[in-house]
Simulated scan of single mutants.
Amino acid sequence: MHELAVAQALVEQVDAVIDQHNATAASLIRVRIGPLAGVVPELLGSAFPLAAAGSRMERAVLDLVTAPIKVHCQTCGAETEAAMNRLICGACGDWHTQVISGDELLLESVELETSTAHPSPLTPPHPNV
């Protein structure tokens, strides 16, 4: 399953973010996926708990955000949304377009947990008996 490899790479990337910010864990991971990215969001959502098991993000919520397909028309210059199998300009109908959104797979944000453990209060020494 391709999505399992993507989930494993995501775990590695989030682990690096956790280290970079001296956090203890991740609680929310937001990923932006375009329909042209070649990743099925439902399968990635199913694969993520397997990849994250035993890691510092095993309890994290994976929020998958769908990015719209947008194209830039090379004829009229418009930027419009397009359909998956119909990458034409929404303004003039020309097919000379360039995809500007919808093919991405991006780690958009990570909410981190930091250690809230405080040193225990000093215990008075026990009297010698």
Rank of each mutant, 00 (worst) to 15 (best):
A117F: 08
G102M: 01
A53W: 14
T80V: 09
Q20F: 05
S120M: 09
A5Q: 15
V39E: 04
A25D: 05
H2C: 08
A53D: 11
Q98P: 01
L28W: 04
Q8A: 08
R56W: 04
A26G: 11
V99Q: 05
Q74H: 12
L44E: 00
V6H: 04
A60R: 07
P35N: 05
H21L: 02
N128H: 14
V17Q: 04
T97C: 11
R32V: 03
D19T: 07
R32M: 13
G38A: 12
L105S: 01
T24D: 05
L62Y: 02
V65D: 13
I100T: 13
I18M: 07
V11T: 00
T123R: 11
L112F: 01
I29P: 02
G90Y: 02
A117M: 06
A82P: 00
C73I: 14
A37D: 10
H21C: 04
H118F: 10
G102C: 01
S55D: 00
T75V: 14
E113N: 15
V99R: 01
A7M: 05
G90N: 10
M84W: 05
R86Y: 11
V61W: 08
L106R: 14
L44H: 04
A78V: 02
H21T: 00
D19K: 10
A52G: 12
N85Y: 14
L50W: 11
E113L: 12
S115M: 12
N22D: 09
A23N: 04
T116C: 11
D19V: 05
L105A: 01
P49T: 07
A5D: 10
A26N: 06
I18C: 01
L87Q: 06
E111R: 13
S55T: 14
E12V: 10
E81S: 08
R86H: 14
R32E: 08
E42S: 08
S27Y: 08
A82S: 10
A91M: 09
W95Y: 11
P41M: 07
S101W: 06
S109T: 06
A47C: 15
A5V: 06
G34Q: 07
C92R: 06
E113A: 08
L43V: 02
L4Y: 01
P35G: 12
R30F: 06
Q98M: 08
C76Y: 13
S27F: 08
P119D: 11
T75P: 00
E81Y: 07
T75I: 13
K70T: 09
V31E: 00
I29L: 05
L44G: 03
D103F: 00
R32A: 15
P49Y: 03
L106F: 11
D63F: 00
E12M: 15
L62S: 00
N85E: 08
A26S: 12
G45F: 08
E111F: 03
V99G: 04
H96K: 14
L105D: 02
C73H: 04
E79G: 01
E42H: 12
R59N: 13
A67H: 01
H118V: 07
V61C: 09
V61M: 10
E58H: 12
A37E: 12
A5K: 10
